[in-house]
Design a protein around this nucleic acid. Structure first.
Lengths: 244, 244
DNA sequence: TAGTGGTCTAGACCACAAA
DNA sequence: TTGTGGTCTAGACCACTAA
């Protein structure tokens, strides 16, 4: 049986149990609406304490895989919400998941002083130096979106030397500068394509664009990147989850 | 001092401590980047156990208000992400938060058999009966969006008798049927306005719309509502957060 | 080395749901 | 009445950080 806690592993017991239960739910061993074993049963079956069992179950609740009812039990949630929605995803990953072959062209790259409006969104003064990277994103060779990334250069001096047609900006920030963008806030709008965007995206002026403004934050909550994405409305859609 | 745990209250200790710390962070008593008291200090100050302290801190971490570093301490996150984004909000609340006076006209209401496409999104058979409610939403008296709500009638028989120009659908589902829509998944697109939508929204045909398709789920994960919202692109924007 | 958060245990009392 | 999950305690050992 792999179905036991590995006491030698460095993986915490609660996380092991979480994985075991999650796999059983995903594989269909526990069906939606069905009750999971009670805490007491799990304690006995896996020979771990109640606290540890509850820690594992709590993670499952947070992910929406199960729900608990006081006095009744723990039940498998109906497969409502897919995994991985609402997570920060790179364009490349995103396109692959949608079954497209991703491509990138760098349109522009350089340093600039933060304009007032962007400075405000990043919560920085107008004197701060920003690195601007403009990219055209392709899916199956056809234009999908234009991205304008504004990075606080003080956090990643020299970012511009890399080749962003080939390498992921997110990965470079992590590997070269130890900056993980773990949270982001974004505003989504529908706007008409300007003449210049229409030409770049191979659509007509006035066609609908899905326009996303995103501010991304490091672990500490410090804003690092201000991103503008102009997606072709006829090709792109955005998935989200809501809660509570 | 209100700054202590009320042992008489029915509110759990960990939730009381959570509230105390959250208020101090929001009020600025603890500043971004600053360390919170250590677990040991909190244990002594509030005379509660470490488990309870950790439970409170965990909630703060989940909300992104603080972050913890093993061996270093617990720190106030920079005020990156506002509260309340990504929560399910009624149109009325949403508009009030944006400073508009909300209004509603019912365009249509009736029962129907689920068409194949909607049945698929709700994960139900084509025979299932749906209640359709079409509403025009106004902000400051000017059209903002058209909403088409499809409810599984078996879960809320007789929903259509209520006056949805005056009352919130969400509230009626909760109060009359005990159904809370706690999760939702949505797809957001930018599309051109059709002739009929353009007339209803008082815009021109082809103008960009922010089109949202939302499936909402009850606590158990069962899908209850399929919603289509056509927002005027020039008036509406959608906020989201991303994580990890 | 001292202090921090991360994990884990054993045990207790409670409110709630179902039979 | 019995069993469930929700809360709380006291104590332990560990890995990591910083001085």
């Amino acid at each position: 049986m792999f179905d036991a806690i590995n006491r030698q592993s460095k993986v915490p017991y609660y996380h092991q149990l979480y994985g075991i239960l999650r796999d059983k739910i995903i594989s269909g061993a526990y069906l939606p609406g069905q009750a999971l074993p009670t805490e007491q049963k799990l304690i006995e079956a896996y020979e771990i304490s109640r606290t540890t069992v509850r820690h594992a179950l709590e993670q499952l609740v947070n992910e929406g895989l199960v729900y608990r009812q006081s006095g009744r039990g723990t039940f498998v949630a109906h497969p409502a919400v897919e995994q991985g929605i609402g997570k920060i995803t790179s364009f490349t990953e995103d396109m692959r998941q949608r079954g497209f072959v991703p491509g990138t062209e760098v349109l522009n790259a350089g340093l600039m002083q933060a304009p007032a409006d962007i400075g405000e969104k990043l919560g920085v003064g107008p004197d701060e130096e920003l690195a601007l990277i403009m990219r055209l994103r392709l899916a199956d060779g056809e234009p999908m979106s234009v991205e304008e990334s504004h990075l606080r250069h003080g956090f990643c001096p020299g970012v511009l030397v890399h080749d962003y047609a080939r390498h992921s900006l997110t990965r470079i920030l992590e590997r070269e500068y130890g900056i993980a963008l773990v949270r982001a806030k974004q505003v989504i709008r529908a706007i008409p394509a300007s003449n210049s965007l229409a030409r770049r995206l191979n659509i007509r002026e006035g066609d609908p664009l899905l326009f996303i403004e995103r501010v991304s934050y490091a672990h500490s909550g410090e804003p690092i990147e201000y991103l503008r994405i102009y997606h072709r409305g006829d090709r792109y859609s955005f998935l989200t989850e809501l809660g509570r």
